[in-house]
Amino acid sequence: MSETHTIVRVSGVTRTFRMGKVEVQALKGVDLKIKQGEYLSIMGPSGSGKSTLFNMIGGLDKPTTGKVFIDEVDIAQLDAFELAWLRNRKIGYIFQTFNLIQVMTALENITLPMIFAGMPNDEAVEKGLKLLELVGLGKRHNHKPQELSGGQQQRVAVARSLANDPAIILADEPTGNLDLTTGEEIIALMQELSEKRGVTIITATHDYKMLSASDRVVWIEDGRIKKIESRDQLNITIGGIDAH
């Protein structure tokens, strides 16, 4: 594992939204470096700019000023085609609402990104089945999302995010729609992936369960980074949070 390689670099990013006639600054200058293989959580209350920062990192939104680099490539310079390629191959997304495509079975959901990547169908199916096996849903490949529980759907989503062996997995509130134990299972699954596969996992969350799994936690407040804590510092702070 390379400790020094920076996979995401955010430098001086601001983002301004127009809300009717009012301009709202969601991010007021954020600098952040994320290392390869890291499990990073972005924490903050809603409205803190957490989601905005998260979308920037995922190439889903462009900064008003400042730059976001993924593997030292400024994503603002990419055209639509390159961005699609980036989303397809380099980034895997996990959503709060699972966002499986309802008309497709679990397996088809997983193979879709591989089809986009130009993989032949048989190969994609084979890999899809392996990924389902990995998340513990090997026997459910033929089920539609409606026939699966929330936790199972999120597992399928995790498997889908791994479809093209991305370098980064972006998880937006992955446990937000899950109950306590199912949420813990998903966190454990992601932590395992980060350790075994060396995938960089970036989550935006306000789920404190996520803290113990994270290598580093970035606290965002009012559009700025309030503090960045690594895991060993965290254990001390968690007590403080619980006391609230």
Partner: peptide, 9 residues
């Protein structure tokens, strides 16, 4: 939106 996140053009 999901399809686009997965890389659809």
């Amino acid at each position: 939106g999901t399809m686009k996140c997965l890389g659809a053009l």
